[in-house]
């Protein structure tokens, strides 16, 4: 979140300032004003009409220039594009592995291993047939790699070519086939390297484009902040309840497409459930015509899908894991469906 190394305490203050409307920074004065002291998550849990409304209205402001869940939602990295002599397209990306303390829930700091300083890592996007060049630099204290899903030569698979601290490696392959993929570190113990945050989404578009839509990326994951082999928080795009605090605005009738990737560690499955609607489900995104219509999809670890929907009625609609435990530990959000402009 910040370029300069920060102490835990400073970081905490920044995080608290971001989330709690500076509730914590001014914790003392707040405590003096209210008999109850410092209030965490106002309105969370005991939902009734008013508190729900309030929590939906409460907005979280993030710092400019830094990656955050709001920005992450619609950020796709298309790489540095270069036309090749044979008429093809080359896309060049740079990914730097770095250790970083990140805030995963209001006030909770997690010592993560990241690609480009944020968990999840950047969403790489290209079109099938593109020549891809991914420059990987390891600035972290452990050896790492990038293992891509999809079709590519064995020596580009990121399993055997371990990149030591200070080392680098360039992955080169042709994007094939189209669909929704992911990438993650494959150094053993893989569980640890994934759990700590080394993963991201990898979208290969079809040459025949999908219909225009409001496109969103959602990587669902968990964080084991006390290292006991169980997740304390479940998030979409790295921050608990971010879209519950900051609902995603869409319009009635607007086509919405979500690239949904499950990178949850420890728990076998995670899921996505949409309220007040049905969606078209394209498993792994490898087909443009075959889909099923549902309102809940279950994803195993590493599984992903593309979903499309549009809302018929305006209002606030929830989306969340249908494992309600995950939902109540941070994997919950809202679509704020605004009336269509007539």
């Amino acid at each position: 979140m910040n370029k300069s190394p920060l102490s835990r305490r400073n970081f905490l203050n920044i995080g608290m300032g971001i989330i709690g409307g500076s509730a914590l920074l001014s914790g003392k004065s707040l405590a003096q004003k209210h008999k109850k002291g410092v209030i965490l998550n106002p309105g969370m849990g005991h939902q009734n009409g008013t508190t729900m409304h309030n929590s939906a209205k409460q907005s979280v402001s993030y710092k400019d220039g830094e990656m955050n869940p709001m920005k992450y939602l619609t950020t796709f990295d298309y790489g540095k594009v270069r036309r090749l002599p044979n008429g093809g397209i080359q896309r060049e990306y740079t990914i730097i592995a770095q250790d970083k303390e990140i805030e995963v829930a209001p006030g909770v700091i997690y010592p993560a291993w990241t690609y480009n300083g944020y968990v999840p890592g950047p969403t790489l996007r290209c079109t099938e047939g593109d020549r891809l060049k991914i420059n990987f630099i390891n600035a972290a204290h452990m050896a790492h790699t990038i293992h891509f899903h999809g079709i590519h030569p064995a020596n580009m698979d990121g399993v055997f070519e371990i990149v030591p601290t200070g080392g680098s490696f360039t992955y080169e392959f042709t994007a094939d086939p189209f669909g929704l993929f992911l990438y993650h570190c494959h150094v053993m113990p893989v569980k640890k390297h994934v759990e700590k945050g080394l993963y991201g989404a990898f979208i290969v578009d079809s040459r025949t484009p999908r219909p225009p839509a409001k496109e969103l990326i959602m990587v669902i994951n968990g964080f084991d902040t006390d290292f006991d082999g169980e997740n304390e928080f479940y998030t979409v795009n790295g921050f608990a309840n971010c879209y519950a605090e900051n609902p995603i605005n869409i319009k009635v009738g607007e086509l919405v497409r979500i690239y949904l990737v499950n990178m949850t560690e420890f728990d076998f499955v995670n899921s996505f459930h949409l309220h007040g609607n049905m969606f078209r489900l394209y498993r792994t995104g490898t087909n443009l015509s075959e889909y099923e219509i549902t309102d809940t999809v279950m994803l195993c670890q590493g599984e992903r899908c593309v979903i499309e929907f549009s809302y018929k009625y305006p209002g606030m609609y929830m989306f969340h894991a249908h494992q309600n435990e995950f939902a109540e530990l941070g994997w919950m959000g809202f679509f704020n469906v605004l009336p269509a402009v007539s």
Binding site: V38, H46, L329
Partner: peptide, 11 residues
């Protein structure tokens, strides 16, 4: 389940 909580005098 994450819940609202008020902490007195300070968290």
């Amino acid at each position: 389940a994450l819940w609202e909580a008020s902490i007195h005098p300070n968290n």
